[in-house]
């Protein structure tokens, strides 16, 4: 248990540090890389909780696919260097206020809930994860079939929408290609 605690503490340090680094680095590429590091530490947290499937999906989907697209867009637009924001300066205090409220609320809720005996137990380690996987698939396609299908249709709609938008932009760019 103690070794797990040490791993947890180190990991949480890494997670917090990478999140802060993401927020405060001036270069968007480094921001994106810090975010990748953060995603990977979160994946390791999932591993510690005995959910290897979620951990690997987290790395594949977030750290792999999505962040690569982010980097791609940042590089293509050449938006590495952030300019000082001036037009939206009134947002800063508001953002701090809202973030503070959210933090206070969530901390309060966590402590209020902690009094109740709702201890979340991790499923049985990584040893029988294939069984977990089967169970997960069964629940997903059995009990929650409708939400699952609705989600997939939602994703499909989003994809079609993205393609339509991209197509329009292509036509518009062709007109003003010399700008």
């Amino acid at each position: 248990m103690t070794s797990e605690l040490i791993v947890f503490l180190v990991l949480s340090l890494v997670a917090i540090a990478s999140a802060l680094g993401m927020l405060f680095s001036r270069n968007t590429i480094y921001s994106a890389l810090f975010l990748v590091l953060n995603f990977i530490t979160v994946a390791v947290f999932y591993l510690m909780l005995g959910a290897p499937f979620i951990a690997m999906s987290q790395i594949t989907v977030y750290a792999g696919a999505i962040m690569v697209l982010f980097l791609f867009v940042i590089m293509l637009l050449g938006a590495e260097q952030m300019t000082a924001p001036d037009a939206l300066s009134w947002q800063k205090p508001l953002a701090f206020l809202l973030a503070l409220t959210l933090t206070v609320e969530s901390v309060y809720l966590i402590f209020a809930r902690a009094k109740l005996d709702t201890v979340i137990t991790a499923p049985d380690a990584a040893t029988n994860s294939m069984e977990n996987l089967r169970e997960m698939a069964m629940t997903l396609f059995d009990k929650f079939l409708l939400p699952f299908e609705v989600t997939s249709i939602l994703l499909l709609v989003a994809m079609v929408g993205a393609i339509v938008l991209a197509k329009k932009e292509k036509g518009a760019r062709a007109k003003t290609s010399n700008s």
Binding site: F53, M56, S57, V68, L71, M75, E80
Partner: peptide, 25 residues
């Protein structure tokens, strides 16, 4: 002997892109 071995392969393969992207940039 990972029980999610195949998923491990996909996740590492998807991370392998970063080196090349970063080198280029």
């Amino acid at each position: 002997n990972l029980n999610v071995g195949v998923l491990y392969l996909t996740s590492i393969a998807s991370i392998a892109v970063y080196g090349i992207v970063l080198a280029g940039w």
